[in-house]
Design a protein around this nucleic acid. Sequence first.
DNA 1: GAAACAATGGGATACGGTTCCTGCCCCGGC
DNA 2: GCCGGGGCAGGAACCGTATCCCATTGTTTC
Lengths: 362, 362
Amino acid sequence: MSQRKASGDSGRATIRDVAERAGVSVASVSRVLSGNYPVSETLRRRVMKVVRDLDYVTNAHARSLAGGGTPTVAILLNNITGAAFAHVAKGVESAASMRGWLSLVGTTGDDPERELALVNLMRQQGVAAVVLLGGAYDYDEYQLRMARFARSLDAAGSHLVLVGRPPLEGNVPATTVDYDNEGGAYAMASHLLSAGHRRVLVLPGHAELTTAQGRLSAARRAFEAYGLPFDPGLVLHGPYDYEHGYDAVEESLRRGLDFTAVLAGTDVVAAGAMQALLAAGLKVPEDVSIVGYDDIPLASQLTPQLTTVHVPYEEMGRAALRAVADRREGNTGRRRTGDGEHLVLGTHVVVRQSVQPPGRRS
Amino acid sequence: MSQRKASGDSGRATIRDVAERAGVSVASVSRVLSGNYPVSETLRRRVMKVVRDLDYVTNAHARSLAGGGTPTVAILLNNITGAAFAHVAKGVESAASMRGWLSLVGTTGDDPERELALVNLMRQQGVAAVVLLGGAYDYDEYQLRMARFARSLDAAGSHLVLVGRPPLEGNVPATTVDYDNEGGAYAMASHLLSAGHRRVLVLPGHAELTTAQGRLSAARRAFEAYGLPFDPGLVLHGPYDYEHGYDAVEESLRRGLDFTAVLAGTDVVAAGAMQALLAAGLKVPEDVSIVGYDDIPLASQLTPQLTTVHVPYEEMGRAALRAVADRREGNTGRRRTGDGEHLVLGTHVVVRQSVQPPGRRS
DNA sequence: GAAACAATGGGATACGGTTCCTGCCCCGGC
DNA sequence: GCCGGGGCAGGAACCGTATCCCATTGTTTC
């Protein structure tokens, strides 16, 4: 009943099955497959034949328990269907697979509890790194939480990478890959101002979101630099989605707000805003100009094509993985740098067709 | 030098460290953590305290080697950034995490070699299932290849799920989750025809892609059902991307082709087509009507909003995971059904603003 | 021709858990 | 008061693979 060696087809062939059938030792099979030890040609052939016959693959769990194993990177994001995050994920995944690494994916749905659970789950998996995507809320709590994650992962031989989030303060073992959020927002606002716009409806995003805060303050600085008054009454906060863009513009028009341009926090928000303007019989950009942020494919698929800020999302993903891989390979001795590095990638304005100098409408 | 029990902080705490520090046996720690065996309250408390102090998490590899372990589902797709696939992936991932399962992700980049390598990699990982997304080329070769995958995975206690691909013939242990591709295409074409369109530019996709073939033949059937001639000269094949939509329409206009509507194989293709029409000074839908396929968010963000076929991508992902989970749980005895099941989810036309009866332009 | 050496195969052990089986202790019933 | 049994803790046998260390064989050199 409890025969250990059923030798049957039930379940999965083990290295012992292969060894037995090939009439060699387990060690030899392992060596043939790893290829990191001299093995005679006849033995190799004999083993490989059995491997093919049995359709054998090594058990990755056992392998990584015994020391070997393929490194795995965990990608944690709010929502896979967000274009921006998807591009970062693509960058991470492609860079990972290029090195033979695996990618685990988990979605947090913006739930801190779930985020915690996922980080722990990934720690169990012994991943080489955890890449956390997306903006962050609640700055103080966030700092504590992330610092704990970082130390915890670091102690387990893993590493935390924050992408598109604010870097951690203090001596925390985490890497941050960021883009020049304020620089892009400043350039974008300046672009509108230099086109002659003076009254700009700003839809920066959620007030608690660090990304939104940065974009808003950059816009304000641009107004100051032009010596122009910034009207807080033209700022409407809300989520980064199409509906918010639509609703915000619709409501602004209904309330009779006076503006000649819309500075949207996101391309998707811009798309919603554009739709609302068109629905109200206004033309873009003749009556109202619109700009976005992110430069996702949607931006160039709208009519008119959207002037926006290009963010190198995919490159950020690749950079994130590169940082981890370098750290892991360069770890000769104890070159653990302690506190993490901070990469900042550049952003730039992409001029398309959604901006014109303001017209008659006042 | 080679002290086995350094007891230090280097690396990761093991269950033995916890047991030692709590003054209990390894077995007890395991039992406290799994919670599947009666344990006294004092012991539980003692162990949990040490677990917290050491920030201990169990090693998932060891755990799954020993029999336990969290099931993992592998999602293999061409490209994460494709909106349709991303929604399927979201469905799979969310259904997986809802059950405590993990999701691995790999991208094939449309490369059959890479697909093979990934399936093997996933087999090594001992995943509960491999979900393969996306249309398939090369029908005969495809059948053989997939059948081999399916049997191979099945022998290893795993399972192959094909999503949005043609089902496998014969007695192959694979599950297929599909949508009513032809039904949707037929309904969409009928919608155009019943609006009065007679000359329709069809952009079904790549000629080798099974999805495209189905959509094209359904369109042809719709013409027949209306007793109308179908002009093969108005069919342009090409990839499912924005550029193809744009180029195809631009070229058609240049060649002076006569059409009053565009039946695009995809929403993204429709977006490109729309842009090309607008660039040529034509209005949508006044001069030319356009319809898409997929109903991704983009469809409702275009101007005018796109009439298209809704495909329940996310639901398909959920259904795929549900099928696997059911099979795995319901496996009392040998209820292995042998050949796989085939789920087909419905599609339907979503009417928006991009279709009007044909106008004057001939 | 013998000894030293390179090449290569095999046995044993470790990796970190889970779980079966055994055994102790304490309680209740006769 | 003794014995049986239930509840709970510990020891040990795996899970499948990599690798250290030793044995064997064929080859080369003095």
